[in-house]
Design a protein around this nucleic acid. Structure first.
Lengths: 130, 130
DNA sequence: GTGATTGCAAACTATTTGCAAGAGA
DNA sequence: TCTCTTGCAAATAGTTTGCAATCAC
């Protein structure tokens, strides 16, 4: 599907590019309405989605829309499957080096911590693909 | 607030610890209902939240509940402020080493990519805290 | 002209909350 | 007993969708 060049779409991109606040859809809606008072929130949502798919804006979503829980509180990493959405554990041994690097980074940048999620195909979906 | 030892809470932890599927709250609700048919979804949500706060289970949420967007599609990293929830950009130069490590990891593990979010205090909140 | 896009409103999904009754220490 | 917790139902928050009208190419 080819993206046509509507006023709404143009202003949404423009305003988002001018902002450094990483707005939510409704925050951007408020701002865009200053230029286009009649625009609807649905249009903002739809465009942000399309523009993100087209790589013209960045969607900062890390996890999916539902939270997930894990009874294992020991340190380990997660990979979200791009095909089925399932979360798979990554063995800590494969990750220890990156974990060390990330801990160094946390010290260096004086931040509290980090969250890292890998994306890929889980074992099940990989098997089915072949 | 001190967590008392109810049947519901005990079974929620038990079932979650036995699962390796990283269930959502409603998935766990279905499973817990096999043991406690009268339990409500609200109880599951409330307990997961309390247990996660107490460090007894892990909540796999990376971003907050609203998606955020960014007009800058160049490679950079984000830090979510633990005080105000704002997202701050991390300068790429501070991050290039970790980025290199992460790219190596992606190759090694044969995954598609990763998502990394730092957590800490943004400049504004840090200034206010002093 | 025709397919993409819009505004509007209603629908939907995940989650949270108020409340009165019940359970745990 | 006194606080924490529960089930239930209603409320909320964020997002998505159906539809008829309108716009872009």
């Amino acid at each position: 599907m080819k993206l046509s060049n509507t006023n709404q779409r143009r202003i949404i991109i423009e305003e988002l590019r001018n902002l450094y606040t990483h707005p939510t859809a409704d925050e951007l809606y408020v701002i865009v309405r200053e230029k286009l008072p009649q625009i609807s929130l649905g249009t903002v949502y739809r465009n942000l989605e399309l523009l993100a798919d087209a790589g013209k804006v960045l969607k900062l979503e890390l996890s999916g829309k539902q939270k997930r829980f894990d009874g294992n509180v020991n340190k380990h990493f997660h990979m979200r499957c791009r095909a089925c959405g399932r979360i798979e554990d990554m063995h800590a041994d494969k990750m220890s080096e990156i974990d060390r690097n990330l801990n160094d980074l946390v010290d260096k940048l004086k931040v509290d911590g980090y969250r890292l999620e890998l994306n890929g195909l889980c074992n099940k979906c990989r098997a089915e693909e072949e």
